[in-house]
Nucleic acid binder design. Structure first.
Lengths: 335, 335
DNA sequence: CTGTTAGCGCTTTCAT
DNA sequence: ATGAAAGCGCTAACAG
């Protein structure tokens, strides 16, 4: 089985000191005679000693790892957030332990429990869990930061300002003269999806009074955007703009429109939400959400709490910004 | 500090049994009296007991976690691989511990060491490390699977068939009548980049004899693709095709070409490598690499080894496939 | 079937 | 400044 890794005991023996001294020497405690320290360092070096992080964690009751619970790694939305978390965690000297959670609330709970004793805190993204389910799933004693999840359960959290984003989109379309604006919503039960469609109704009332709002439910994946277009056509609906609840569905909408021979933005203008990297390449007008930054800030807040600060149960709302691109541009050249 | 989590000892007391019985009962050992088990389960339930994974790991010398060392989470290339790993790891009941490694070999070594005692095995992606650096960085006793890294150091690994992919690209371009084919290479020192440019030279010799190959070095990021086009123009080079060493640079090339007013594929045909999700949306002809599948297979192989099998130090080569899209299509409508 | 006990590898009082 | 020993929470012999 090869060479078993050296333990602190081996180092102690090699350096002819006690394990306590090895621990102190290697952890930079002041009260260690320079010569002792040198002997220890040399011994550790010679044996290729690497401290056993697991044992260290158990002893210190600190793992320097944070657990990330997320619904699905698929697509750029979550990758971007994880990227931001990774960056920050690296800077702070922590590790990221990933765990996928499937929609079900009890599985979510299980995923979180399976992290007990492995991580010092949790970052949870569970947009599909309701407040009660989320509250039940969250381990009691563990510091946690919620991202894109139901808040208001007395936990630190970050939320996207969904309402402002959608309202800005609708206002933008209205300013372009569009009134028959359709909304392709995200899945029922998803908190962001719900806020976005509510904002759509409100914005329609304000900017397109007298026009009946039309909402088609999708699932945040691309195909459902294309399906929504097919549905609209089979309904014989008239529309001159589509506000999709996220970028992936907007891409599906674009595909559906292209296949139907409908010009974008001439006949139909299209907007998305999130501003995933793809959106920029495809010239999609969308609402920018600082995904990576959210990830980084979530980590920052959690680590601050772990290192002594306290974790206020506030919800921090992250501002969005409308980014106008080709799918709503009046004409080529319009910024 | 709130309610300290219950330990196995609390459960034992509550159920009036020994900790050993609690352990056995909760871990499904056969030799436990049904009634005892019931009492234990009830006590655990009542106390909200969740086993401490860290302690468990220390005792079992098994963490059920695998460490992933990767150079950069940026871009879709690595996200896709991680997605595949995540999927498999979930199915196998393991966790993923992420660790970013920066280019430097000593930092790489440090990243790997910091995982000792936290994970049972390692998956390492270090395309920029040479064989010696990689060998030095890898902890001796730890099972590891290399992905996109220098192989031939007696470690299990997965490699992309870079040569075949580039040769297929060049052959495809040649079949289209292109001969003045330029290569935008990846960064020096990157193993994949090197294999790809070597294959380019070989393919040029075979398909465009008499034409001097032109290679411009990039860094695998988008901007360097655009820069390469600028460079070619400033050199007054004539070319009718560009083979980029990866998709991100191909996208930059497309942008550079567009800004220069050069028609694609009319004047210049373009190919990429990897087939990241973006490539499909942008109609980029490219070499498909089953990224997610590689991640999944790497995990599968590692876990198999951890669960008793042995890890043969073979290099498994992953086949690629040329995907022809609009950036090399002869005319609209050509598949 | 169940309890006692000895670790897993490390940190940390408490003495000296 | 250093060593001995207790203990983090759990599992696994080893006895009964």
């Amino acid at each position: 089985m090869g060479q078993a890794s050296a333990t602190i005991r081996d180092v102690a023996r090699e350096a002819s000191v006690s394990v306590a001294s090895v621990s102190r020497a290697l952890n930079g405690h002041s009260s260690v005679h320079p010569e002792t320290r040198a002997r220890v360092v040399a011994a550790a070096e010679a044996l290729g000693y690497v401290p056993h992080a697991g044992a260290r964690s158990l002893s210190l009751a600190r793992s320097h790892a944070i657990g990330v619970i997320l619904p699905d790694l698929h697509g750029e939305f979550f990758s971007e957030i994880v990227r931001g978390m990774d960056r920050e965690v690296n800077a702070r000297g922590y590790h990221l332990l990933l765990s996928n959670m499937h929609a079900d609330a009890s599985l979510a709970a299980q995923a979180m429990r399976s992290m007990r004793g492995r991580v010092d805190g949790l970052i949870v993204m569970a947009p599909q869990l309701d407040a009660a389910g989320l509250d039940a799933a969250l381990p009691k004693g563990v510091p946690a930061v919620l991202v894109n999840s139901h808040d208001g359960i007395g936990r630190a959290s970050f939320r996207i300002d969904n309402g402002a984003g959608i309202i800005a989109s609708v206002a933008h379309l209205a300013a372009l003269g569009r009134r028959r604006i359709v909304h392709v919503a995200g899945p029922a039960g998803n908190i962001d999806a719900r806020e976005r469609s509510e904002a759509y109704y409100a914005a329609m009332a304000a900017h397109a009074p007298g026009i009946a709002p039309i909402v088609i439910e999708g699932d945040f994946h691309e195909q459902s955007g294309a399906d929504a277009v097919a549905m609209l056509r089979s309904m014989d609906a008239t529309f001159d703009a589509i506000v999709a609840a996220n970028d992936m569905m907007a891409l599906g909408v674009l595909r559906g429109l292209r296949e139907a021979g409908m010009d974008v933005p001439g006949t139909v203008a299209v907007t998305g939400f999130d501003d995933i990297p793809l959106a920029r390449y495809l010239g999609l007008t969308t609402v920018r959400v600082p995904l990576a930054e959210i990830g980084a800030r979530a980590v920052g807040r959690l680590v601050d709490a772990l290192e002594g600060g306290d974790l206020s149960p506030d919800t921090l709302t992250v501002a969005t910004e409308l980014v106008v691109r080709g799918t709503t541009a009046l004409s080529p050249g319009t910024p």
